[in-house]
Design a protein around this nucleic acid. Structure first.
Lengths: 205, 205
DNA sequence: TTGGAAAATTAAACACTGTTCAATTATATT
DNA sequence: AATATAATTGAACAGTGTTTAATTTTCCAA
C-alpha cells in the first residue's frame, strides 16, 4: 500500500518541519527566547500539534542537539586521513573549538544546556550516545598516542577528560560571556591563542 | 537623626531578607525552579515589593553571584601563606575545583548562567569586577611562575586563560551532567583524577 | 492629638510560558 | 454516502516576570 507509506512520510515531514522551524528560530533569536507557540506560528499550526510529534520541549532540544553532533562528526571526518595520533589529537581539538565558535547556540545545546540530558534521563531506553561516541573518538586517539609512548604516567580516562575539559572550558567561557575580563587586546583571539598554549603543553608530554 | 538611619537599616534588612530567601530556595529546589513569587512567599510579602529593592530578577542573580565570589575569595585566602608560586598555583586549582563541587549551584550562577553578566551589561556603571579580580589572582600567580623561569615560550594571558578553562571545563561538565559517558568506575572521582593529570602537565612545563 | 505629606506595600492586570484534553475537522475505508 | 479513524484545534490550567494604580502604613509639623 503506497498510501500508508505516503501518510507515514507526510507525518515525518511535519515532524521535520517542526525541527526545522525550531532550529531557525533558535539561530535567529536565541534558544531561550523561542517558545512552543513561536514554533507553531512558524509552521502555521496550532501549538497543540507539536505534542503529537514530541513528548515535550526537552525532546525537541534533544533532537536538535543530535543534529549538532551530526555536524560535529562531519567536521571530524577529515581526521581519519591523519595517521600520526599526536597530529590527529591536535587537529581534533582545533576542529572542536572551531565548531563551537562557529555554532555557539548548537554547542550550547550540546554541552551546556541541561534539556537534552534531562530528556535522555527520563527515558530508560536512551542514553547519551551522542556524547559517548564523540568522547570515544577522543579516547581512542589518546590511547593511540599512549601506545606510541606519549603521555607516560598518565591514566587514559583522566587524561582524555582533562583534554576535553580544556577545550570545552575555553569555548563555554566564551559562549557564556566570561571573557571580557581579559586584557582588551587579547579578548578577540583568546580561545585560539590559549589553544596554542595547550598545543605547546601537549608537545611536552 | 537616628530615626532616619534606623529606617535605612530596616530597608537594608528587607533587601537582605530577599537575598537570603532567594539563596535558600536556590539551594533547596534549584535556581531554575525558583520564581519571584516563591521568594515573595518565603519572606511573606507580595511579589511587587521585590521590585522596590531590585531592578529585576537578573539583579538578584547578580547579588547572589557576588556572595559566591566572597566565599571563593575566602577559600583562596590561605594561598597567601604559600610562597612558592608553582605550589600556590597548584593549590589554587584545587581550591577552585573543590569550591565548584561543594557549591554547584553557586558555581553555576558565577560561571555558567548568563543572568549576572546580563545585569552588568545593562548598566554602564558596572563591569564584572568579581570575575576580574578572581582572574587577576590567577594571572599574578602565573606571572610569578614565569618570573621564576617556568612556562617558557608561553604568553601570560593565553596561558592563564588556558589554566582557568581547564578547571572550569572539568567543573562545568560535571555540573551540567556530561560525565556519565565516562567508564563507570571513573565517573565518581573523574574531576579529582583529571586534575591530577593536569598537575602532572604543569610540572613538565 | 491630629492632618497631611511621604513612603511602603499590595492587588490586580498584562503578556507571556509549557502542557493537556475535549471538541472539531479532515481523511480513509467499507 | 455513512462510518470509523486520524489529524488538528481552541480553550483552559497553572505557572512566569513585570508594571502600576490603589491602598495602607509611617512620619512629622502644627
Amino acid at each position: 500500500m503506497g498510501l500508508v507509506e505516503r501518510k507515514i512520510r507526510e507525518k515525518e515531514e511535519l515532524k521535520d518541519s517542526i525541527l526545522k522551524a525550531a532550529k531557525k528560530l533558535f539561530l535567529e533569536r536565541g534558544i531561550e527566547k523561542t517558545s512552543i507557540r513561536n514554533i507553531a506560528d512558524e509552521i502555521e499550526y496550532s501549538p497543540g500539534i507539536i505534542y503529537h510529534y514530541f513528548k515535550d520541549k526537552n525532546e525537541i532540544f534533544h533532537a536538535l542537539h543530535t543534529e549538532g553532533f551530526q555536524e560535529l562528526r562531519k567536521r571530524m571526518g577529515i581526521l581519519s586521513a591523519i595517521v600520526d595520533p599526536m597530529s590527529r589529537l591536535r587537529a581534533m581539538g582545533k576542529i572542536y573549538i572551531e565548531f563551537g565558535l562557529d555554532n555557539q547556540d548548537m554547542y550550547d545545546l550540546m554541552f551546556i544546556i541541561e534539556a537534552p540530558i534531562d530528556h535522555v534521563e527520563t527515558r530508560d531506553d536512551l542514553c547519551w550516545t551522542e556524547g559517548d561516541s564523540s568522547f570515544n573518538l577522543l579516547r581512542i586517539t589518546v590511547r593511540e598516542c599512549m601506545q606510541k609512548g606519549h603521555f607516560q604516567g598518565h591514566r587514559l580516562e583522566a587524561l582524555s577528560f582533562m583534554i576535553w575539559a580544556t577545550v570545552h572550558g575555553m569555548v563555554s567561557l566564551k559562549i557564556r560571556k566570561r571573557i571580557n575580563i581579559l586584557e582588551e587586546a587579547e579578548v578577540e583571539n583568546i580561545v585560539e591563542n590559549s589553544y596554542q598554549s595547550f598545543l605547546m603543553v601537549l608537545d611536552k608530554l
